[in-house]
């Protein structure tokens, strides 16, 4: 009988070891009560498959994405340079993260500051594990034949052209994937990007997450799948706003797989 392992880079380095991939947890993954379950689900999958990974643990800091999008370049670069020093110190080559904002920032914006890594989103990582046969989805179970819709997050989709990996995962689950009218390149934002997560919206006639949730509910899906911590929060709030929280779940892709695997 053994328990799940979550090694840190510091522990690995002390043992003279280095993992294949760094799992970048992100602030939401570390602190958000609901989203911690996604981090835990992903770690369980990594354990189950036997992926050699580690996390930075307390050495991780915000990538700086919201500061940069809100205009505070100094603060962004302070965060980024400090993170890059830590990562380069551990000689990290490959990074996986469940947060599209962290993904975009580390992948596209850290190179200009001296941080060059191969960065992949957890949807791509999970898809490749499925393709390699390292995860064999059972199908059936509680999702069998149910309708699932996928909400594209802007920083995964339009920002980085990742549209198919999340859909491949859902299709592998023996469920019915139903698309919203505004999907893929035309996907509607959940309303949280560009640092909007951290302030109230400007005056308007509606909240963006409600507009998007209505569209998701109109597909008849009982599960709204997302691949982003901010989208998860916004869509969950939207479902509550529409008083559908007893009928409709908002879940992350990693949770879908963990559930299928009985983890």
């Amino acid at each position: 009988m053994s328990t799940y392992k979550v090694p840190t880079m510091a522990e690995m380095a002390a043992a003279g070891d280095s993992p294949e991939v760094l799992f970048w947890v992100g602030c939401a993954g570390s602190f958000d009560e609901r989203y911690k379950a996604v981090t835990q689900a992903f770690v369980k999958i990594l354990n189950k498959v036997g992926v050699s990974f580690a996390v930075l643990g307390p050495e991780e800091a915000c990538t700086g994405d919201p500061a940069r999008r809100a205009g505070n370049e100094f603060l962004f670069q302070m965060q980024a340079v400090a993170n890059i020093q830590v990562m380069n110190g551990y000689n990290i080559k490959k990074v996986v993260t469940a947060c599209p904002h962290c993904f975009n920032t580390i992948k596209n914006e850290y190179p200009a500051l001296g941080g060059d890594y191969q960065v992949i989103h957890h949807s791509q990582f999970l898809q490749s594990l499925i393709n390699e046969g390292k995860i064999s989805l059972k199908g059936g179970g509680e999702f069998k034949g149910k309708k699932i819709t996928f909400h594209d997050s802007c920083y995964l989709g339009r920002a980085n052209d990742v549209y198919e990996a999340p859909r491949e995962i859902i299709k592998a689950l023996d469920v019915e994937l139903v698309e919203m009218k505004r999907c893929k390149t035309k996907g509607l934002c959940c309303g949280a990007g560009g640092a909007q997560m951290f302030k109230e919206p400007e005056p308007g006639k509606k909240d963006i997450n409600v507009e998007r949730t209505e569209e998701a509910l109109n597909t008849g899906a009982t599960t709204i799948a997302v691949g982003c911590p901010f989208c998860l929060t916004m869509m969950t709030d939207g479902v509550k706003n529409k008083e559908k929280e007893n009928e409709v779940n908002v879940v992350d892709l990693a949770e879908l797989i963990a559930k299928d695997q009985g983890l």
Partner: peptide, 21 residues
Amino acid sequence: PWKFAPTDRFNWADKVKDEEI
């Protein structure tokens, strides 16, 4: 971006570390 103690950043792992595979 949220006001949490940096030392608590890794607390999420406690739960999984205690769980049997």
